[in-house]
Amino acid sequence: MSGVYRPKRQRYTLEQSPQDEVEEHVAAAPSSHENSAAVGLSAPGTPSESQNPEQTTTTSSVLITVDEESTQEEGNSSSGDEPNSESLFTPSIEGKVAEMMEFLLTKYQTKEPTVKIDMHRIVEGYEACFPIIFQRACECIELVFGLTVKEDDHLDNGYVFCSTLGLTCEGILKNDHGVPKGGLLMVVLSTIFREGNCATEERVWKVLSRIGVYPGIEHAIYGEPRKFLTQELVQAKYLEYRRVPNCHPALYEFLWGPRAHEETSKMKFIEFWAQVNDTIPSAFPDYYEEALKEERAKAMASSSASP
């Protein structure tokens, strides 16, 4: 919509990778579920003996990511052509983003048609901000739950949900309330890729601790994460979990499983990172080159297998 400012995403170097934004958004995941979608957005925090790990502070401020350099420039100037994105996202607008997320997740769970006219009822009084609210809600659902919201070719002004990275096993990638758990798998697969196609268990849990996910502690969305990672996702062949050879005491590591290689690819991750950072895949040259090699290898294998 013309005349509506679309806030800039935060840019990252290779040292501060796109996964940092994924982790930040996963930390903003709904903290509790009843029969449908979430009622709040939880901030991450390391549980202690005096704090119940399931009792979290409700906030939606983590949903908003801005270009830090751009924000500094705007802060040093009293005028500008575009409004400051931080000032644009008032608590009321942030609340509408959370409501939109809840609405979309409910539609996903109930498999009911998702149409724009219903979304406009949610943003009543903030119609001019609808594109921004809808965009942010879709970004968070993609990053937190591994779902992409896209236009429905068979329904005017309608939308459908699909897996962001092509992962298909819905049974294993949903919790008891039908809420998708694909976002956690995305973070783990991304970590493995970034760590050279093999990540130690210690490294994986260190990454997950940044989003409030700890081994042995029940998570509102992901359940007991150790079982989910080392058993359920291994049985579904999305992950491999093996002991590191010649290592005492015993250490374990994660790799992509055969189903992950079959259903998604490194190039899909690169394209996703590029989308998150409003850039192009080649902006991550080392990873991009590795992904290209994988694509070429798959093409050659497919060609040689053809009659």
Rank of each mutant, 00 (worst) to 15 (best):
W273Q: 10
L233Y: 06
E232F: 12
T65M: 03
S190V: 00
N175H: 06
E23N: 13
V179I: 15
A305N: 10
P258I: 00
T58V: 12
V62W: 06
V179M: 13
M100C: 02
S302W: 07
I270F: 07
V276N: 06
L255H: 15
T59R: 08
P245S: 08
N277V: 05
V123E: 02
G75S: 06
G196M: 11
S60A: 13
P249M: 08
E294I: 08
E54Y: 06
P281A: 10
A27M: 04
A250I: 10
T114E: 07
K111P: 03
H248S: 11
K293E: 14
K111A: 12
S306E: 05
L88Q: 04
D20L: 14
V149W: 02
S190Y: 13
G146R: 00
V207F: 05
I133F: 02
Y126M: 04
Q72F: 05
G75W: 05
I211D: 04
I64A: 06
E68C: 00
A137E: 01
E74N: 01
Y126Q: 10
D156Y: 06
I117W: 03
I192F: 12
N246E: 09
R296A: 13
P18D: 11
F269G: 01
E240Q: 12
E142S: 14
T264Q: 14
P113E: 11
K96W: 00
R210G: 12
T148W: 01
L184M: 15
I192H: 10
V26Y: 12
S163D: 14
T13W: 07
F161N: 10
T57H: 09
L208I: 00
I122P: 04
E201V: 03
Q275H: 11
C247V: 09
L143N: 08
G178S: 07
E99T: 04
Y159E: 08
A260H: 14
